[in-house]
Design a protein around this nucleic acid. Sequence first.
DNA 1: CACCCGATGCGCTCCGGTGAACACTCACTA
DNA 2: TAGTGAGTGTTCACCGGAGCGCATCGGGTG
Lengths: 143, 143
Amino acid sequence: MFTGAHRVKVDDKGRLAIPAQFRKQLREGSFVSVSQDNVLAIYPPDLWGALADQLKSPLPGPDQRALARTLYSMSDQFEPDGQGRISLQPEQRRLTGIETPSTVVVIGMGSRVEIWPEARWDNYSADASGRFTEFADRVISGH
Amino acid sequence: MFTGAHRVKVDDKGRLAIPAQFRKQLREGSFVSVSQDNVLAIYPPDLWGALADQLKSPLPGPDQRALARTLYSMSDQFEPDGQGRISLQPEQRRLTGIETPSTVVVIGMGSRVEIWPEARWDNYSADASGRFTEFADRVISGH
DNA sequence: CACCCGATGCGCTCCGGTGAACACTCACTA
DNA sequence: TAGTGAGTGTTCACCGGAGCGCATCGGGTG
């Protein structure tokens, strides 16, 4: 399971070093693509497969195609270099607003790893943690 | 699998350099033709064959013929020159609105490669990525 | 206190993309 | 019929960028 948050640098060539803790768990065949809320995510092979399956299974249609195009065009095989770094594609950076160079926050999200621009993460997590108590009350009390 | 997006130039002779990443995967016998939403696509041999089969198998009729005529008339064998470039036919450019010279976006779509006029792709992908979150919510929550 | 591992910056090399020049073919004209 | 022009297709050469590796620095651990 992927947990924790790490602040890492994106160099001027758009590369970032995956925290060693995550790197050890990420198998070959993982994919880097978009996730919810315009952030990047590294999907392990099985989760990636589930996403891809959903996109071809039912009847193809305009919505299906639009989603497939987003997922595929923003994705790239997870292939760290000898130093454990991956390079983010220009389209991926454009969508998520990641500059070169800049600082991003790499967070564990259970089954996947997410990559956030630092400023956006700070705003988001401040807001999210503020609402955590109320949410946890509802979830936990129901169990 | 074809993934990722690349912005490349179409020169004044209607030629474009296929990104090396895609070129390596595209076997001899691929075809360039139309795809949904008025874009061009490069179909690997097996996918092209499946399309052709689809067009003759069920019941022949006016719709069937119209589809076949469009698909075949807009198609051209995938034959890159010594520099890895293909030239787009005038009819193909007319249908898709690709000028000479101009910039196009070549995207991987899993089993095929698509070629978009830059402006149209920018509009389309902005809209599509906005709706990606709800889709990902559904899929990931089910796993 | 010393060693090890992980993150980051830097420099070099190779390759891919782009522009331009060259050569060939076909059509039109004198 | 021969010559000239334009258009098309092919090849070459340059330049920018991306990939690769090394080296350093800092922090954590034994």
